[in-house]
Design a protein around this nucleic acid. Structure first.
Length: 288
DNA sequence: AGACACCTGTAT
DNA sequence: ATACAGGTGTCT
């Protein structure tokens, strides 16, 4: 479920609730969800801060520079509770917390059980495949059209949709925000990743930043499962222009939106606002 | 680049 | 019964 805006919203919702709290007990209720480096114990560690990299959450624990790396995949959720939890189906990990005599609990819940929590020395997180190979963060100042073009050039011949979903090209986009960004930029998901003009790359980079920022401002998109760390839904789903709207009229031109599978994912786009051919109406007449 | 795997729930 | 879902890792 969660893409960058949802993961960032989870991070922001949990950060003030969890910093400074010490883990007093760990229950791993399902095999294979939580893995802890054999040299480490979570019990007794204090949450120093929570960072995000792409779609990963990184809980920094002290003392000893320990990192709890979390990927929520499709349906992972954290629930913060200030009362003892009544464990539900699909609750997989329970952390009991204490600070200045107060108690709290953090539950990891995941219907489809695709998500993973890994605990390891902070210095070794570079060994986690996936995290180590992530592309640049789209919300840092250095992200611009030039950088995007250089990253897309790594996937010259693949479709732009496939390239934007590739976390090694750019970190954080998923199916919703790839489609929303391409629509807002007026670029077809089927364009070759290496075919963007510098002006198009500038425009797409700017729009990716704006779409993700707007979605974070809405606390994410809640269609099915997604909620933040306090079980609160986002509301960017009310601003979606194309995702999930196949067959419905384009909100810009009225043409029915096209729904098709690209890069193995359902993709929605406007055949008029996002022409497959790079801007035919603006091309200079062919001359030889 | 594509198929399939990992899972469960929901909608048709 | 079948299709599909905010993701990604592995194998053709």
């Amino acid at each position: 479920m969660p893409e960058l805006p949802e993961v960032e919203t989870v991070r922001r919702s949990l950060l003030p609730l969890l910093t400074g709290w010490t883990i007093t007990a760990v229950s791993s209720l399902t095999l294979g969800v939580l893995s802890i480096d054999p040299s480490l114990t979570l019990t007794g560690l204090t949450i120093k801060t929570i960072r995000r990299r792409g779609k990963y959450l990184l809980f920094d624990l002290i003392p000893g520079a320990v990192c709890m790396v979390v990927h929520l995949r499709m349906t992972g959720q954290f629930h913060y509770l200030d009362q003892p939890p009544i464990l539900q189906k699909h609750d997989h990990v329970l952390l009991a917390l204490e600070r200045a005599g107060s108690l709290a609990w953090l539950v990891y819940h995941d219907t489809r059980r695709f998500g993973r929590i890994q605990v390891l020395p902070a210095g070794e997180i570079g060994r986690l495949s996936g995290l180590a190979v992530l592309g640049p963060e789209p919300l840092v100042d250095s992200f611009n059209g030039d950088l995007l073009a250089r990253r897309l050039a790594r996937r010259q011949k693949t479709s732009l949709k496939a390239a934007l979903l590739d976390q090694t090209v750019l970190a954080g986009l998923g199916n919703i925000y790839a489609d929303e960004s391409l629509f807002a930029a007026g670029i077809s998901p089927l364009r070759r990743a290496g075919s963007l003009s510098p002006a198009e790359a500038d425009r797409l980079a700017d729009i990716i930043r704006r779409v993700l920022t707007a979605a974070i401002g809405c606390r994410g998109t809640s269609i099915r499962d997604y909620v933040d760390g306090l079980n609160v839904r986002g509301h960017f789903q009310y601003q979606l222009q194309v995702y999930g709207r196949g067959g419905q009229p384009c909100l810009r031109c009225g043409t029915p939106l096209v729904r098709r599978t690209i890069a193995g994912r359902t993709t929605c786009s406007c055949p008029v606002c996002q022409p497959d051919d790079p801007s035919p109406s603006c091309s200079p007449p062919a001359s030889d």
